[in-house]
């Protein structure tokens, strides 16, 4: 009896050891692929940051690079997507991490790398880092933004707590500029249709306009004119990639200081920056965030907004739906949809 118990204990210990070894080796080890080993080099990975690293391969590889995070609650999130046309041994990559993620999966050129992130989470860090994580964990980003035609020109801050101010900013401030040129095209089309309908040879009844009856060649000029107006409206109405930013002053005792944020819109290369900041902000539109808390949102297709414009290097951040990063000529760019909204906290505050 005692012998059987000892054997069971031995087997259990062996299984636990195997399991532990497997878990330990899983962090950073090559998964089955084409025999090429991948490594992640650079600064240590930290939650609530945009992490920048170098993906190194034991042999030159080419093709797609994808970084996905697996969440503790299940499900995968695509964090980085890139394509290298020429063979490479090292490629710069970047990705957002927070404590909701359990592991990281990197696929490149047919090889795979899985990293266990569980050791990065929790409060088992140096006290300063633990304090930062505690404060970031409490900063919940609003869920989404948009849904209004006209943005509020300003936001009164007096007496508002930061989360309430963020919800108002997301709902009322993060609204793209109106496509006025496209609206003008629509007005012209409506006017043209009304004038054509009121012509003496126009219809005697109904909205259709009996002058329309007839062979196609007679209709062709009008059809072509409406088609041209439609194409012009489409080109002018297409949403321009937009980076929204609301810069909140430091809070005092849980509430924001009095004052208000005012809207400023500035065109940038390839995108538009819509920023709300306190009046008399010295940095001016697009200035670097310094010692501030900012709510940022991104509505842009891939490869258009430089990561440095979204947040300064080293700043802490927390997104509910993180931006997708991509690499172009060694630089990192961010893209996002209507759900890409989050907090940026300058680490030096």
């Amino acid at each position: 009896m005692r012998r059987r118990a000892s054997l069971s204990l031995l087997l259990a210990a062996g299984a636990a050891a195997c399991l532990a070894a497997g878990i330990t080796e899983g962090g950073g080890r090559l998964a089955p692929g084409n025999g090429i080993e991948l490594r992640l080099e650079g600064a240590p990975l930290r939650p609530y940051r945009m992490n920048r690293a170098t993906l190194a391969a034991s042999e030159p590889i080419r093709g797609y690079i994808e970084v996905r995070a697996r969440a503790w609650r299940g499900g995968e999130i695509l964090l980085f997507q890139g394509e290298e046309e020429s063979a490479f041994r090292e490629a710069p990559i970047g990705f957002y991490l927070d404590e909701d993620y359990r592991s990281l999966e990197i696929a490149a050129g047919g090889s795979y790398l899985e990293l266990d992130l569980s050791a990065l989470t929790g409060l088992g860090a140096a006290s300063e880092e633990a304090e930062l994580r505690r404060s970031m964990r409490a900063l919940h980003p609003p869920l989404a933004f948009g849904g209004r035609l006209l943005p509020a020109p300003s936001l009164e801050l007096a007496g508002l707590a930061l989360p309430a101010a963020a919800s108002r900013a997301a709902a009322a401030l993060f609204v793209p500029p109106l496509p006025l040129a496209a609206f003008a095209i629509l007005a012209a089309a409506a006017l043209a249709a009304a004038i054509a309908a009121s012509r003496p040879d126009a219809s005697k009844q109904g909205i259709a306009g009996r002058e329309g009856a007839g062979p196609l060649p007679r209709l062709a000029p009008r059809l072509a004119a409406y088609l041209a107006l439609a194409l012009a409206a489409a080109a002018l109405a297409a949403p321009r990639p937009t980076l929204y930013r609301a810069r909140f002053p430091r809070s005092q005792g849980g509430s924001l200081a009095s004052g208000k944020l005012e809207r400023r819109v500035g065109p940038r290369e390839g995108y538009t920056l819509v920023e709300y900041a306190a009046r008399g902000e010295e940095a001016g539109i697009g200035g670097r965030l310094e010692g501030e808390v900012a709510l940022v949102a991104l509505a842009a297709p891939p490869g258009l907004v430089p990561l440095g414009e979204l947040l300064p290097e080293g700043a802490a951040c927390r997104f509910s739906s993180p931006p997708l990063l991509t690499s172009r000529e060694g630089e990192l760019y961010a893209s996002g949809s209507a759900g890409t909204i989050g907090w940026v906290v300058d680490a030096r505050r």
Partner: peptide, 14 residues
Amino acid sequence: GGEEALLFAEALPF
């Protein structure tokens, strides 16, 4: 026919 096509053309910019 043509009238219907014209109605669709007028709606096309929108």
